[in-house]
Write a protein that binds this DNA or RNA. Structure first.
Lengths: 245, 245
DNA sequence: CGAGTCCTTGAAAGGTCTCAAGTCACGTGG
DNA sequence: CCACGTGACTTGAGACCTTTCAAGGACTCG
């Protein structure tokens, strides 16, 4: 029956704690018990909402913190010396991002909000220290990075071998799975990113992505209404993607 | 003046210990002091030489150990449901591989020797336990994974944006840098992988890779003699790769 | 409501792939 | 040690897919 009435906690609503976060099954907190979560809580700072376009971190700046997305969505991207931009990932609530800055001590990519977004911020040094006492947390960090590597490897396979149809189909199916894992509809969702961003991510041009969407709609596989996507023929999409969502 | 005369150590030559390994500046042991290294030593088992084509681990099998390459070279590759193979990386002495199996508990890719190769094997559970007491080791593991992620992201950029010339030039320059870091010539080296493997890795066909090599040689940028490569005009190669080695 | 951006659609161009054939290197066995 | 066979590599010509260039239409936000 603790309603956060102590002076220290008065400004922190219970929903602002890991133990009450509806994402803790996706985030770092997975498999931590209550007392462990409260330790994690102490090193987490909750950011205020960011608008579309705002940067959570900027390529080249010192690596200090990692982020756990709470609401909204972001893209990560690197800008090469020649100035062209490569999107390296899209992230949703529950995702932990920024761990790739550890080895160089600087942020290797920029993180930008695709819509109104809130994120929890964790100083990496504190997280690392805490991981000494919490084996499950330590393991979770390693798992996150390990999964990131596998995701990137899947993207390599996509970019190295697949044509435009296969790329877009795989992209939609992976999004679908991620929305499903977050309790949203897997067959109907809104794309938070632009066609340009999809194209960039998939190594295609905007025109090609647009044509593929049109074609898929003509074939009755999906319904497209601007950013709204409805998957009509899941099996057909799966076949297009060679069942490798 | 310990010459390893105790019974337990008699079969272990001093060169078989991390503290005497000429790769410890590249490997996990970087920045560990002698006593720390000896702790690491205890959980490392040295494998006997593998022949070209032999597997260090197989996609799908249980994830138990990670590997540190001692001599030779390997490729990692994933085989998709449809059976086509995607090479995800080439690795050389001092590289630590296999950490991407943590999150799923199974090996997400196969590791195959490209030539006669020896590797140290470390059970991950023991390594993780040891990392509790050795902050520098813990950090090194994270750094390795963080760097892996960045490398994959660079590959994404390569595959998404670059044409065949840029891909091959970048590939050669990255190899050159890695050989240099290992004390070998940066301008003259032997490719341990086949044209087919290069093509697969770069998302091209064998024919295209062959044509690019031929063209680069005609332009006087490199000399090719089967697997022997000599970089003649480094600046030209850098320009081809847009200075993004 | 207008300006600007995003998205779509079309036609032509270009780069890589596919298919095919020939050459070369290497290991095996005679 | 040489001959041979096999696999790896190279080279050429045509096909195909995606890009490029161009323009029109739709959505969004001040």
């Amino acid at each position: 029956m603790n309603h956060n009435i102590s002076l220290q906690n008065v400004s922190i609503s219970s929903s602002m704690q890991c133990c009450n976060c509806n994402l803790n099954s996706l985030c770092m907190a997975v498999s931590l018990d209550l007392s462990e979560m409260s330790k994690l809580d102490r090193i987490i700072s909750r950011g205020k909402p960011m608008r579309k376009g705002q940067l959570l971190s900027t390529q080249g700046e010192n690596f200090i913190s990692v982020f756990a997305l709470k609401t909204g969505s972001v893209k990560t991207y690197t800008t090469s010396a020649e100035g062209d931009e490569q999107i390296t990932g899209f992230y949703f609530p529950g995702d932990l991002i920024g761990l790739n800055g550890i080895h160089s001590g600087t942020c290797p990519d920029s993180i930008q909000a695709l819509e109104t977004t809130t994120a929890c911020k964790i100083e990496f040094e504190q997280l690392d220290q805490l991981s000494v006492d919490l084996p499950k947390l330590r393991r979770q960090i390693l798992k996150t990075m390990s999964k990131d590597i596998c995701n990137e490897q899947n993207m390599l396979q996509l970019l190295a071998n697949k044509n435009s149809d296969e790329r877009v189909a795989t992209f939609l199916l992976r999004l679908s799975n991620r929305f499903k894992a977050r309790g949203f509809s897997e067959s109907r969702f809104r794309l938070p990113m632009s066609r340009n961003e999809i194209a960039n991510y998939l190594g295609l041009t905007v025109e090609t992505v647009s044509r593929v969407f049109t074609r898929m709609q003509k074939n009755g596989f999906i319904l497209v209404n601007n950013k709204e996507i409805q998957i009509v023929e899941l099996k057909a999409l799966l076949k297009l993607a060679n069942n490798t969502a």
